[in-house]
């Protein structure tokens, strides 16, 4: 069963099967780690986005919830992500002003939408990635 684990309320509301973690990005990672230990597989990379922990207070991870032997790829990715988050300063959503927080939440949601769409997880099925760019006219010729 696919499930999103997130501390981003904005995304939580838009997704079919989602668990909202009240806490930091690290809390999300640790919760996901426990699930991976019990056999869940990661469907998205836990460090999605080209951002250091101190630049991303939100984390959203899509998993395939299962019981059984831990998946090695998932395990090494989640353990590594936890290690990285524990090794440096992190920011929590609460300590940000609302405009910055919204930007972070927005980016986090954006980065997940594509993957969530692929796995049929969006409540609003119309949300698809931007269509291939076509220009109205040949501006330069």
């Amino acid at each position: 069963m696919y499930k999103l684990i997130t501390n981003n309320p904005e995304l939580h509301h838009d997704v079919k099967n989602s668990e909202l973690i009240e806490g930091s990005a690290l809390d999300v990672l640790i919760h996901v780690r426990s699930l991976v230990h019990l056999g869940s597989h990661l469907l998205t990379h836990p460090l999605c986005g080209n951002l250091r922990p101190n630049h991303q207070p939100f984390r959203s991870i899509l998993i395939d919830e299962k019981n059984g032997l831990a998946d090695l790829d998932s395990l090494s990715l989640i353990e590594e992500a936890v290690r990285i988050y524990q090794s440096c300063m992190i920011i929590t959503p609460e300590e940000l002003d609302s405009s910055t927080r919204n930007d972070y939440a927005y980016i986090d949601s954006e980065l997940m939408r594509e993957s969530l769409g692929q796995y049929g997880m969006m409540k609003d099925a119309n949300i698809n990635a931007a269509p291939l760019l076509l220009l109205k006219k040949e501006v330069l010729n």
Binding site: H37, L38, L69, A70, L72
Partner: peptide, 20 residues
């Protein structure tokens, strides 16, 4: 996780049930 055990250099390895 057998591959981790292999990586850390164990020679006799028994796979077990779940991490926790």
């Amino acid at each position: 996780i057998v591959p981790i055990s292999q990586t850390v250099g164990a020679n006799r390895i028994i796979p077990t049930i779940a991490i926790p």
